[in-house]
Amino acid sequence: MMILLYIIFAVIVGLLFHGIHRKVIARIQTRPGPPIWQEFLHVMKFSFKQTWIPKTASKVLFVAIVPAVIAIWAGALYVLFTGGSLLVIFGVYLLHKITEHGLGLSSGSPYGKLGAIRSVLSAASEIPLIASIAGIYFVTGSLMISDIVAYQADHGILLITALPIALAMYVIILSKVPYSPFGIIEAKEIVSGNKTEHFGAFRAGLEVGFALKTFVLLAVFVTLFIGAMPFWMLLIASLILLLTMSFICALTPMLSPYDAVTIQIGVIIIVIIYMAFIAFAGGMP
């Protein structure tokens, strides 16, 4: 497999997805919105701009966090396409939380620090992820993505047979797309939150990393809950999934940090009730 080509393709599609996401949100809100290639222009714009490190920054962390974001999601992409372990994807997600903290704390900016603190608060979003992964194991008996895909070929897609688990994963991905109601770490009242001081080449690198992240998370959801399909169909399914999120993002205001955490805990309660139901019923319905 030409891993490099897949990574470059995922970056391009991820940036395009971000642009489509913005466009759809704008059209729902009866605004013209930017062109769908706006995120490419953003990356170019940032890379041509001045790049420096603030005096207050922890220099090594400030710089190293950017390649770390790109590297972890590039690794996750490889794990996904080779049908590796879901635990590795979970580990990457946790590492991403650490990079969110690191981004904000490394700059020394009060806005960045506030974004990092909110990132710690929103760590409750890992709870639905744990519930989702535990639920998938409970239902399929394996955490290997290849086994989960094979299970769906025999027993039907998990999106229908294990809807509450899919709902938990959906909330996780929703919390990570731009302009999400759960996106408290980069809310406008704290400028750009944890990304505030990263600009120039660093911000362009971050945009590349976040494009990879969006592509991987959407593809993970489609693979885990719909199953194996041709690559072009995976792209279309990912786009449809993103569009549903665009509607939510367009119609829902930014939640307060405490409301965001409450909803995420509500999701895990639904999953626990569902798993208890399966356990008492003696297997999958």
Partner: peptide, 13 residues
């Protein structure tokens, strides 16, 4: 790959 991305963007500045 991340080194390539960052160094490319730094070269473009």
């Amino acid at each position: 790959f991340p080194v390539f991305v960052l160094s490319l963007f730094t070269a473009l500045r």
